[in-house]
């Protein structure tokens, strides 16, 4: 049973790393945003401090069972999806020593299903609180998801069709053999997926869900204290998951943690940079954006893949 113990340990380690990386990236973003706006800004650990503060709130409002479960749902979904993502390249030594084979040899389609679970939990929880702002936030979030999922799925379909596999590990192995990253061999799919990531991270032009000024932070507007803290944790794990998935699919995976950090950080800065120079879109503008060029690029990628 030593194998099981190691796997559990590895799972714990992966989760803690995903959490720490996601939170720190958020903190670095806050600091960088402040510098861009000619401010000093908070420390890069500010998100951790916020989290400790939220967890040490003395009272929490109770809005009913689903409102209670939503944060747990989000964090459970985040950890589950994390277990299905190859964090490091399977051929690397770090992988076998630090992250024993807890990563599932599979399947992009399954992953696509699982990744919406977090949003689903959020939607159910926000629904129970009965706050009209939450309801509007949820509808906006789902509409936006319909927008960016299309180029994202098109990009993944192009990869799956071209290489006749749905396994992430196989796609990583193909990049290994050919020595070319997918972002260069399938540039159109990569661009489509990159545009989709702008919507996934909900930085500025696409922050229509949270919209503090109009919607009072949208779906989370009735969640405070510990609930908000748990949601923050789940959110940062999800950020890490998305980045790692992109690195695995388009940048050949990572052989060590520092390599993973460099690649994910570079990817993370794309939505952040885009956010600094853009004001917020309205919902229909956001959807029109995703169904415009990103979808066209995605279709082009699929055509090239089939060809």
């Amino acid at each position: 049973m030593e194998g099981i113990g190691l796997k559990i340990l590895g799972a714990l380690l992966t989760t803690i790393m995903a959490f720490a990386v996601g939170m720190t990236y958020g903190g670095i973003t806050r600091k960088l945003t402040a510098r861009v706006q000619n401010r000093v800004g908070p420390t890069i650990w500010q998100n951790f401090i916020d989290l400790v503060k939220l967890q040490s709130k003395k009272t929490n409002i109770y809005h009913g069972v689903m409102g209670h479960f939503a944060p747990m749902w989000i964090i459970t979904a985040a950890m589950t999806v994390l277990m299905f993502i190859p964090v490091l390249h399977p051929n690397s030594t770090w992988y076998s020593t630090w992250f024993p084979n807890l990563t599932f040899h599979g399947d992009l389609i399954f992953l696509l299903y699982m990744m919406v679970f977090g949003s689903l939990g959020m939607a159910l929880g926000a629904g129970q609180t009965g706050n009209p702002n939450s309801a509007i936030g949820v509808t906006r979030g789902l509409s936006q998801m319909v927008g960016f999922e299309i180029p994202f799925v098109l990009a993944l379909v192009a990869l799956m069709v071209q290489y006749k596999t749905t396994s992430i590990q196989d796609i990583m192995a193909i990049q290994d053999q050919s020595g070319v990253w997918m972002m260069f061999s399938n540039p159109f799919s990569f661009l489509a997926a990159l545009f989709a990531s702008l919507g996934m991270f909900r930085y500025s032009p696409f922050d229509i869900v949270g919209a503090p000024a109009e919607l009072a932070s949208g779906p989370v507007s009735e969640f405070g204290g510990k609930y908000l803290g748990v949601m923050m944790t789940g959110g940062s794990i999800f950020a890490f998951i998305k980045l790692t998935l992109y690195v695995d699919l388009f940048m050949g995976g990572a052989y060590s943690i520092p390599e993973l950090l460099i690649k994910t950080f570079a990817l993370y800065m794309v939505p952040v940079f885009y956010g600094w120079v853009s004001p917020r879109y309205r919902t229909e503008q956001a959807i029109r954006y995703f169904w415009g060029w990103p979808t066209a690029l995605g279709i082009l990628g699929v055509i090239i893949a089939v060809w």
Partner: peptide, 19 residues
């Protein structure tokens, strides 16, 4: 905002009383 920058002290706006 930029001139006095309260965020460096960890002060940040919350949109709802719950938070």
């Amino acid at each position: 905002t930029s001139r006095y920058d309260a965020e460096r002290l960890g002060i940040r706006g919350a949109a709802t009383p719950r938070q």
